[in-house]
Amino acid sequence: MVSLPLDIEKTAADDGRSVVLAKLRRGDAAFRWLTRAAAVSVLVILGAIFLSLIEGAAPAFRAFGLSFITTQSWNPVTEKFGGLAPIYGTVVTSALAMAFALPIGIGVAIFLTELCPPVLRRPIGIAIELLAGIPSIIYGIWGLFFFAPFLQETLQPALIGTFANVPILSNLFAGPPYGIGVLTASFILAIMVLPFITAVSRDVFETVPAVLKESAYGLGCTTTEVVRNVVIPYTRVGLVGGAMLALGRALGETMAVTFVIGNAHRISASILAPGTTISATIANEFTEAVGDLYSSSLIALGLVLFFITFIVLAGARLMLMKLELKSGT
């Protein structure tokens, strides 16, 4: 927009240049402040949520202290609340879901990037991205109406029957088969987080320089060895990031879990038994929570979930740091 006159004196030309430069600097400063504000706004929002959670949860923690997270009696009649059952349910369903989804998700990503015929690559990739776009309520309805009855008639009786006489495992797979329960919720969660793991893994696998892989192949490595010794070590930061994204979703998932977990405030040895999670409990009970202590206890559960997520993320960071130290990069 600013045209620099060529036929004027040097000083004038300098002036013009400095005007342009100042303008550019102002633009840059504005841009810097804009992005900084965006970053700060995240912190402000997070801090505000954290503070209001603490304020809301205070009455519950004042009344129950540490026993809020160590006891499992959740009794709205006597107003005695202990959140261990939903805390346990949240951790167990998420852990199981990750155990199911991680191998499958990374397997799909390896197939897509290393082994898949190019014709199939796009359709499979799009299908996975579509899976990520399905609203969670749909997973819940599908889980309740189709998946749970299916498990009730097939997998659950089989598990109960097979392990009936094996010590420990017979408790883990104790009946009766309700169809819904902790295991079903974990399966649904695994399906829901699968696209996150797959999409992120695929993207990071594609960043591995071809020359690295080709060198390994040139040394006579098999595909398995290339994946294990070149691709995965090269992309581990990205892989952990994808897994954390998935775990974050699994920890906080509400509707789909509410439909299929059975919503029972109990800790059972059996993973076929009904349980509950923090977010499912809040979704179920918040609207009808009469009385300050009841509402406060639900908010306190939210605060606990906040901490669980924080611990998980911190743990992942720590794990990454250790990995990097070990490999010396």
């Binding site: 009696s73 959740w74 009794n75 709205p76 009649v77 006597t78 309700y178 819904i180 329960g181 509410t258 439909f259 059975g262 919503n263 029972a264 405030h265 009904p274 509950t276 179920n284 009970e285 009808e288 009469v290």
Partner: peptide, 17 residues
């Protein structure tokens, strides 16, 4: 053991919304 309320501490069973 259980009492009367809009939500209860159920000793058995599954909860549905």
């Amino acid at each position: 053991k259980i009492g009367t309320n809009t939500s209860l501490e159920w000793p058995v069973g599954i909860g549905a919304k």
